[in-house]
Design a protein around this nucleic acid. Structure first.
Lengths: 346, 346
DNA sequence: CTGTTAGCGCATTCAG
DNA sequence: CTGAATGCGCTAACAG
């Protein structure tokens, strides 16, 4: 073996390495590395020389080598319950865009609303030493929570907030809105419009749905009647919405309004009402939640609660980027609010 | 410096490495590595010892180190046009599940139907040295094609097939169905039912849409009338479907059927028909494409073409896994067919 | 079937 | 502000 310990020959692989760039720029590899990563402590002229060499040689950094050397990848894990709900797609799309623009790749995991699946995904993805985490809500296994905490990786929670003094772990970051307040606001609006027997029809029964029920109950106060709550753990769908309308009509014929926990349920109910000749809002008013696509095309157009999922994705990604850069984040819990969209179904 | 070149001390980092596992199992690191990766050339007893050590120490492999040493990661890049189309979500979901079960992670990229965006995503994601690629269709920039070819990474194309002797590059793998045949079949069915002035209404105008138009034209033969084609490059939506119905009714009042290029368009048209009091199928028949969710709930229930996107995702992932394992793939181009779903809208 | 040697390409020390 | 040395954790390539 030739004694060229320092002057290592390049392998025959066509790959252009940082070494080559450094050589072409007449600097040391570490300077090239620093220049590329935008560390400020590099002379402007050297940065230019490096940049030129990169362009000339067509250098492409190796994320694996970076991750190995720095113990941190450029990937962000994003965990959502479902891909078949427009809600999460909008969230994801916004988050992914924002992260990509900031130089991060997204590793998307779908939990199907199962904490165990989430935990498994976390275990798998954490191997990659992601730079950041975006997770949905706060409902997870203790093990999952421990994994997140223990990893020391910045994490932003989306769709809900857990603010207030009662918060034990002061390190939680979140971007969302109050599901409870949203449930309350829509119910209050229905009451304001004179509806008295307001039913609540829900599917999936995930934590956020239950928070909306809380808001509904609180708004109703003494007028609340458990017999008007129609909860079904099956996933949300047009067909289930239709079935729930039938169920309400049969079991609570005096209901004058139905607050559906998600727009697809409400849209399905509207279609069913049309089918069986039930007047909306004459016989019964129908309102939904989330303002998913198509609601404005229904007969009658659906009243609903517009939730800011796109903005949530955007803000969460931005907050996470700040955390990953080690910057201070002014607001730990951002409430993006919601908006009542009142069309003709109530 | 102590002369312990060989007997490297472990760093103070809590991380359990393959080294530790090997030591605990009383074998060399490479044997532990081989055992973990399931290489057959390891004695059963040693495999057991290694497995036990892994469990006992809670060893977790480092993907970055693996990728760096082997020049290949365990990630698969999946590129789809859109996340807001149920079609691609189903495809993605099935593919992701299958890949995960086989030990691969998915890197999802959304191209928004822009070849340039696809090329940029490819450039970005290829840095990770993915183990495989799943891309939608065949319509891409030359540069993107070159990137794929040049990378030498196994690639499966989905949603379309380019089979036949005319195929220059014999290395193409694909899983899909004939969009052309599907367009043809539905048109033929409408003709069989006695419709004579069949309009075609399309949005997005991506390559697969255009193939469906071809099928439509071929089925019509001499009866084809360009004035009955209503093409709009805007993205597909309920609202656009409604607008297209209006357009057809206004500009081609003698049209007795409309073949919508996607179900959301068709569903939007059905809603609009209800709104303006147009009888379906009495005044005009309406059919869609893809059999997206909700079609069966429409008034009347929507006739459409069911496309096997879930199966496509599954098969594509399986084929890719085989390719990544270096196995031979019997069929390079798999045609999964389609199915006419005839409900009451025609 | 098992072990030895030698990096993969980069960033983290620490010097200067 | 720049550089030298060192090793991240793992596997490829060869020996035996």
């Amino acid at each position: 073996m030739t004694p060229l310990t320092a002057t290592k020959r390049r392998r025959a692989t066509g790959r252009v390495t940082l070494h080559d760039v450094a050589q072409a720029a007449g600097v040391s590899p570490i300077t090239a590395s620093r220049a590329l990563r935008g560390e400020r402590s590099v002379a402007t002229e050297l940065v230019e020389r490096v940049t030129a060499a990169v362009a000339q040689l067509g250098y492409v950094p190796d994320p694996a080598a970076r991750a190995l050397a720095s113990a941190r990848s450029n990937q962000v894990v994003v965990l959502i319950p479902l891909l078949s709900n427009g809600l999460f797609v909008d969230l994801l799309d916004a988050a992914q865009r924002t992260l990509l623009a900031a130089g991060y790749q997204s590793l998307i995991g779908v939990t199907h609303y199962h904490p165990e699946e989430e935990e498994a995904l976390l275990r798998t993805y954490l191997m990659n030493r992601p730079a950041g985490l975006i997770v949905t809500g706060f409902d997870r296994t203790d093990a999952a929570r421990a994994l997140i905490e223990g990893s020391g990786i910045p994490c932003v929670h989306v769709m809900e907030n857990r603010a207030g003094p009662a918060l034990p772990s002061s390190a939680l970051h979140s971007v969302g809105f109050s599901q409870q307040a949203a449930g309350h606001a829509m119910t209050a609006e229905l009451m304001r419009r004179g509806y008295r027997r307001i039913a609540f029809a829900a599917a999936q029964l995930d934590p956020r749905t239950l928070q909306r029920v809380e808001g509904y109950r609180a708004a109703l106060g003494d007028a609340h009647d458990p017999a008007l709550e129609f909860m079904d753990a099956a996933p949300s769908s047009f067909a289930l919405g239709a079935a729930l309308l039938d169920r309400v009509l049969a079991q609570a014929p005096d209901a004058d309004a139905i607050f559906f926990n998600n727009d697809d349920l409400a849209q399905g109910a509207l279609l069913q009402a049309l089918r069986i000749g039930v007047q909306v809002p004459g016989r019964v008013a129908v309102v939904g939640f989330n303002d998913l696509t198509g609601g404005d095309q229904m007969l009658p157009p659906l009243s609903t609660v517009r939730t800011p999922r796109g903005d949530i994705g955007l803000h969460a990604a931005r907050m996470l980027v700040a955390l990953m850069h080690g910057e201070a984040v002014p607001e730990r819990c951002v409430d993006l609010g919601f908006e009542l969209v009142l069309r003709e179904s109530c």
